[in-house]
């Protein structure tokens, strides 16, 4: 555990909580892609199957349970509790175009050809592109609420901090996971355009961020 890893995890947690609270307080999931949230729930489920097989630390186990719990709570709020506010017409990204290639890639390129390892690899690849339905939705409607941009910023920052964590671990521990690093790079790059807009248009009198 190093400072980048910890702040990355906390940034990830902050993103998840921000989104949950936003939906809960406003009683609405307008502008939020339910498809992205389903993908994140799938990501956590397939990655944290090792909760059943191995114990790493109390921190590890509790964070995994919190991430999974919040992911399903978010999906529940969008598709059940506040379903009437869900913007399904604008959430039109075809997720099979992500899940199928990512599944194929996980079977082809993995550390070990076993079910658990392939599912872990699948979750790493899927996470890197799971935000695309959300970004697609924002580009389609042309706007995002400020709180949604905070969510996206924290979510993007998390993987960027993980990249620094991997550089740290390579130098000090000799640890190198090319699958995680490659997917983490792709994931971070997808947020770069958004980061730029978040910083440059994050003015004081801003209510909404327009994306191209």
């Amino acid at each position: 555990m190093n400072v980048f890893r910890l702040t990355g995890d906390l940034s990830h947690l902050a993103a998840i909580i921000i989104l949950l609270l936003k939906i809960w307080k406003s009683r609405s999931c307008a502008g939020i892609s339910g498809k992205s949230q389903i993908l994140f729930a799938v990501v956590f489920t397939t990655r944290y199957l090792d909760l059943l097989t191995s114990f790493i630390s109390l921190y590890n186990t509790s964070m995994k349970l919190i991430y999974i719990g919040c992911a399903y709570a978010t999906v529940y709020l969008i598709y059940v509790k506040f379903r009437a506010t869900y913007d399904g017409n604008h959430d039109s990204f075809r997720v099979e175009f992500l899940v199928v290639p990512v599944g194929g890639l996980a079977v082809l390129i993995n550390h070990n050809f076993s079910l658990m390892e392939i599912l872990w690899t699948f979750s790493i690849y899927l996470e890197s592109v799971a935000i695309l339905p959300q970004l697609f939705m924002i580009s389609k409607t042309g706007e995002a609420e400020t709180i949604t941009t905070h969510y996206l910023f924290c979510l993007g920052l998390y993987r960027a901090l993980y990249l620094l964590n991997w550089i740290w671990r390579y130098y000090f521990e000799g640890f190198l996971d090319m699958i995680a690093i490659f997917a983490g790079l792709v994931q971070t790059v997808l947020y770069c355009d958004f980061f730029y807009l978040y910083v440059t248009k994050g003015g004081k009198d801003r209510k909404k961020v327009m994306l191209p």
Binding site: I56, N60, W120, A180
Partner: peptide, 10 residues
């Protein structure tokens, strides 16, 4: 541990 085998990350 072998490369990539230790899944202590989230």
């Amino acid at each position: 541990c072998p490369i990539g085998a230790k899944k202590d990350e989230l």
